[in-house]
């Protein structure tokens, strides 16, 4: 078996007495979509924040491409190949759509220290940005102000920015959140094709999307992974059903 692109080993994070992440070990292999599901407050966002470097775990290890990145910051991990999208769109709302993807391109090329050269005249940056917009279907909206976009389009833009980075692994925090049925369907088919480019660690509430996309699913409850398996295994798991629907009491 090939090595995982991204893995956590016995990750732990507590806030006072609350164990938000309790001994979590997950991995992400090339070409797969690994979904993490769980009820509200299960610790999904805390887990993502640790994987992306925004929170320091109390114990455990995070590896990216076999390298221990546990003690590095967000910046280093982004450079090392984590392409992240946010649950609540974190975009420069006053800027145009194109400027937002250009930012990704500037980050990917790693050259923000040019002061007198117009960013739009840089062919490499422009083509990277434009390609990403085309792929998510926003090329017609390049000149629009981001705050004027619909919620769904903002989600697409989030993905487009991550695309410009050509990451080794995508980490997506509820990309479907707030999308209508149609938008959710479009994004699902897009993400479906994306896995060949880089594997996706997908935190998602939209179960239709998760069941349609995921190669493997991990179920997180009270900070613990109670089950990891294929869609069918998770569907038929008693533990999962109990966690979601409650046991008979």
């Amino acid at each position: 078996m090939t090595d995982p692109i991204l893995a956590t080993h016995n990750l732990q994070k507590s806030f006072g007495a609350l164990k938000a992440t309790d001994n979590v070990s997950i991995d992400l292999y090339p070409g797969e979509i690994h979904a993490i599901i769980g009820p509200n407050g299960a610790g999904k966002s805390t887990l993502i924040a640790q994987i992306c470097g925004e929170l320091k775990p109390n114990a455990g290890r995070i590896e990216l491409l076999g390298q221990d990145v546990t003690h590095t910051n967000t910046l280093t991990r982004a450079k090392a190949g984590i392409g992240r999208t946010f649950q609540i769109s974190a975009l420069a709302m006053e800027d145009t759509v194109l400027q937002n993807v250009l930012l990704g391109a500037v980050g990917a090329v790693g050259s923000p220290w040019r002061f007198l050269f117009p960013v739009l005249a840089d062919k490499l940056l422009y083509s990277k940005a434009n390609d990403a917009l085309k792929r998510v279907g926003l090329q017609g909206d390049a000149a629009r102000r981001t705050s004027d976009l619909s919620h769904g389009q903002r989600r697409q833009l989030e993905v487009a920015v991550a695309l410009t980075l050509e990451p080794k692994a995508f980490v997506m925090d509820e990309p479907m959140a707030g999308l209508g049925a149609e938008g959710s369907k479009t994004l699902t088919s897009f993400l479906d094709g994306l896995r060949d480019e880089a594997p996706i660690l997908l935190v998602e509430h939209d179960m239709d999307a998760v069941f349609a996309l995921a190669d493997r699913i991990s179920v997180l409850v009270y900070g613990q992974i109670i089950e990891t398996g294929t869609v069918d295994q998770i569907r038929s798991s008693k533990a999962v059903r109990e966690a979601y629907l409650g046991s008979d009491t």
Partner: peptide, 26 residues
Amino acid sequence: LVARSPFGLALNAARQAPQRVQTVGL
């Protein structure tokens, strides 16, 4: 010129969405 440069673009975004700027490696 600075406002239109890659630096200006990144700075502008750092004001509006610092988290985003970090996740693109800046």
